[in-house]
């Protein structure tokens, strides 16, 4: 039964506790991240070395970008299964276009990502198809298009211009993909927390019908969110092409799941309405870090895990974090 009185002022204890389950989840993911870094730093030589840190960040930049787009989609209560395939398609498009100059390469990759996002948005808002189905279809279509476009093999990028610089060069000591992540996440945070549209995205996730009755432009906002997810996938595709010197039509398989995992670990509700940009980044880094730790462990020679084991361990780790979050949230819910 609903409570009657406006809730009493928070207790002294309450003041020092995170206000929401989301805040607790954020706390959980940050704690897990710190614990894993500490573990790695104590156990492995070179784990906190500059080279390792930079290559870790660079490698995970693609996942972080895709996860950011996914986070916004999930906050509206939707899902975007096409991000991995869109990134692969974008990498092929970028590689092909790079022969016309680095700008053309970038533009080609981003356009491919945006095109997938546009189709998603139009099908979901215009034709009222459920996001799961719509993006499943575009995932298959993008995957096929990438293979067709690339002729079933990877496509080399042009090496006579500076398209490859994106993946190779540093700027002010940081790899360019890392800068892209910094800007994208800052923009994402600003949008979510400081711009009106961020509040509306969350309100739509809270209840689409309600949002409509409140006079929000639901279709327009959703279209924007899927376009953004496509743009992020396209950016990841450009980075992929540039740093591996080739468009990779078969890369990107399973990226959408890593992205969803990052978002969920970051405390964003799969049902929408609640979410955090910062915690999504922490979630993406956490999942990447598990991978790095396994590599280091293999390097120590104590164990030798094949690459097939990595997803298993990632999965178990993800489960552990989610259970931890549920426990934290549970203790709070049961306390008076």
């Amino acid at each position: 039964m609903a409570h009657i009185l406006p809730s009493a002022p928070s207790s002294l204890l309450g003041r020092f506790m995170p206000r929401s389950n989301l805040a607790l989840a954020r706390l959980g993911v940050v704690l897990a991240l710190l614990a894993l870094i500490l573990f790695g730093a104590l156990r492995y030589d070179g784990f906190v070395g500059l080279f390792n840190i930079l290559s870790f960040l660079k490698f995970n930049s693609m996942f972080a970008l895709v996860a950011l787009g996914m986070a916004f989609v999930i906050m509206t209560g939707g899902i975007d299964l096409s991000v991995g395939a869109a990134a692969a398609l974008a990498s092929v498009a970028a590689a092909i276009c790079s022969t016309y100059g680095s700008a053309a390469g970038i533009l080609g990759g981003l356009s491919a990502g945006l095109a997938v996002g546009l189709i998603n948005g139009v099908v979901i808002t215009g034709l009222r198809i459920q996001p799961f189905i719509a993006t499943l279809a575009t995932m298959l279509a993008a995957n096929g298009s990438a293979l067709l476009l690339a002729g079933n093999q990877s496509v080399s990028i042009a090496t006579d211009n500076n398209f490859m610089a994106i993946g190779l060069n540093n700027f002010l000591g940081l790899p360019i993909p890392v800068w892209i992540v910094v800007f994208a996440y800052f923009g994402g945070w600003l949008t979510l927390e400081r711009l009106p549209v961020g509040r509306r995205i969350l309100a739509i996730g809270d209840g689409e019908a309600t949002a409509k009755l409140m006079g929000l432009h639901v279709e327009r906002t959703l279209l924007g969110v899927y376009l953004f997810s496509g743009l992020m996938a396209g950016t990841a595709g450009v980075i992929l092409a540039s740093s591996s010197f080739a468009g990779q039509p078969t890369e990107g398989i399973g990226w959408e799941l890593i992205a969803i995992a990052s978002v969920v670990v970051g405390g964003t509700l799969l049902t929408g309405g609640v979410g955090s940009v910062g915690a999504t980044l922490a979630g993406a880094l956490l999942l990447g870090l598990v991978f790095t730790v396994i590599n280091f462990e293999n390097g120590k020679g104590w164990i030798s895990l094949s690459s097939s084991w990595q997803p298993v361990i990632r999965g178990l780790f993800l489960l552990a974090v989610v259970v931890l979050q549920a426990k934290l949230a549970g203790t709070r819910r049961n306390s008076p």
Binding site: P196, R199, A203, G207, A209, T210, M214, G215
Partner: peptide
């Protein structure tokens, strides 16, 4: 409305000003 009670996860202030922040 009777049952559709704004956006439950959003704050009171946000609910009052959604769409005209």
């Amino acid at each position: 409305y009777q049952e559709l009670n704004l956006a439950p996860h959003r704050t009171v202030a946000e609910n009052i000003f959604l769409s005209r922040e």
